[in-house]
């Protein structure tokens, strides 16, 4: 009995963590290339609405996820053109992307409010995914396994491959990378595309897996938490995984406490928890190492022009 409860809590935790993990992993690669894209929330919302719209009209959640990734890349490219090719301020452009995502998702989603779709289901056969205990391992949907595989892949890519080394080089010293002959702008375009795809996918996880119906602004600031997670993780994929699951735990605890209905603790005060936890964690990170930005790519947020 208790094991069943523990397993179900674990399932909630994993589900709550997955979208932030995906979005944060994408942003980590973007930031490693030296670009700060504050539009994660906007890309997530765009992905969420695109995923829902396609899944609703085709009846296929797989197509929905693909569309979400594509939509994330598309809006990511708007950011890339503005910041990389037109040298626009990255902070301002990222904010514009978020405002755009909120408006666009709300406008496109207006026709889908209240509609429901079939939730993204587990990938393994029922014998495994319905088992009271084994489902802790085998009961998740495909996106969860994909996110874990991607953490591993990104970790290996950044540390063990030549391309990963080049990407980091571009983020640490764009002028030198350019002098050696690497195409700084092209590499950053690719990184932003990857970040957009993962943010879009993360957003779609909200509308296709967590709450299989459309509601305005359903990502509720998780894109910003993803940005904070990258700092928390010190730009390392392994710690990012830990951080994302830690936040998943905070959010699960919030849900559990809400369900338990503790009289003196208003649900609104509980809802503050993830945001306050983010601030607390960012603060503790800085206390831990006074430099504050240790691990941050040296060129993060700085524009680059070849001339």
């Amino acid at each position: 009995m208790t094991s069943a409860i523990l397993v179900s809590i674990l399932m909630t935790l994993v589900a709550a963590s997955t979208p932030i993990l995906l979005a944060a992993l994408g942003e980590l690669v973007v930031e490693k290339s030296g670009v700060l894209n504050l539009g994660v929330e906007g890309m997530m919302l765009t992905g969420a609405v695109a995923g829902f719209a396609v899944a609703y009209s085709t009846g296929s959640t797989a197509l929905g996820l693909a569309a979400a990734g594509a939509a994330g890349v598309a809006v990511g490219m708007v950011f890339a053109i503005l910041t990389l090719s037109l040298n626009a301020n990255q902070v301002a452009t990222g904010l514009a992307l978020t405002i755009f995502g909120i408006g666009a998702s709300s406008l496109i989603g207006a026709g889908f409010v209240g509609r429901t779709i079939t939730r993204l289901g587990p990938v393994f056969p029922d014998a495994l995914s319905d088992h009271p205990v084994l489902r802790a391992v085998f009961g998740h949907d495909g996106v969860v396994y994909l996110s874990l595989a991607l953490v591993l892949a990104v970790g290996l890519f950044l540390r063990r491959t030549r391309a990963g080394l080049i990407l980091r080089g571009v983020g640490e010293n764009d002028a030198s990378a350019h002098a050696i002959g690497y195409r700084v702008i092209a590499i950053r375009y690719a990184a932003i595309a990857f970040g957009g795809a993962l943010a879009g996918l993360g957003g779609a996880y909200f509308s296709l897996a967590l709450t299989p119906m459309w509601a305005d602004g359903l990502t509720a600031g998780r894109g910003w938490i993803a940005l904070a997670l990258v700092v928390f993780a010190g730009w390392r994929p392994g710690r990012l995984l830990f951080g994302a699951y830690l936040f998943g735990a905070v959010m699960t605890a919030e849900l559990q406490l809400k369900a338990a209905g503790i009289a003196w603790l208003a649900p609104e005060l509980l809802a503050m928890a993830p945001y306050l936890a983010t601030i607390a964690v960012l603060t503790m990170m800085s206390l831990g190492r006074q430099a504050g930005r240790a691990g941050a790519p040296a060129c993060l947020g700085k524009p680059f022009s070849a001339s």
């Binding site: 904010l95 514009a96 405002i99 666009a104």
Partner: peptide
């Protein structure tokens, strides 16, 4: 909201 965001995008461009 969409129109406002478009304005900011175009402005930055």
């Amino acid at each position: 909201g969409l129109f406002q965001a478009l304005l900011l995008f175009v402005l930055l461009a």
